[in-house]
Amino acid sequence: MDYNINEIQNIENDLSGIEYVMIKVGDEMFGINIAYIDNIVRYQKFTRVPKAQSYFKGVINLRGEIISVMSLRLKLGLPDDKITKNTRIIIVKPEEETQIGIIVDEIKEVIELFDKDVEKNVNSNPDGGDVKVSYVDGVGKYGNLLVSLINIRNLIIDKDMVSV
C-alpha cells in the first residue's frame, strides 16, 4: 500500500482546501497538487535521449542534477508543444528522491479547492473511456473554470507499472 502526501492531506484537510497550481495546456486547464511541486523553471534547451519514450523530450541540467523532461501535451495525446515565452517546466516529485520535469504551455495561478468544489473521478470505469481519465483524479470548479486535477503518479509512472 502506498500513500502519498495528497491522500494524507485529503484526510487532514477536510476543512481547509488543497492548493493546486493551475496550468494551461491547449485550451484546457489542469491542476497539479502543490505538494508535489518542487520547482518551476523556464523552458530550456534539453538533450535528446535516443530511443526514449516518445513523450519524453530529453534531459535538462538543473543545478547539477540531471532531470528528465516529459511533454504533458504528448502524454495526453495532444499536438506537440509550441515553445513560447510562457512555456514552463514544472519540476515535480512523484515519489521520494525522484524528480521529473513536465512541460506546460503556461502557468496561471495557485488556486485553493475545497472538497465541495471537486467532483471526483468523472468516469467511474477506469478501464473504459478516454485514456486521459486515469491521469485525472477529478474535476475542480474554480469560479466559472473547470480544472482537471492531475494524478501525478498515474501520469508519470506508466499505468501498467502502477501496482494498486
Partner: peptide
Amino acid sequence: IKPIGDYISGSRAIGGATILGNGEIAL
C-alpha cells in the same frame, strides 16, 4: 557519471549522462 534522470528509458547504448563545462548535458 550521473544517472540519466528518473522514469525515462533510453537506448541501452546510453550508460548515463554527464554535465559539460558549459552546463550542457552529454550522454
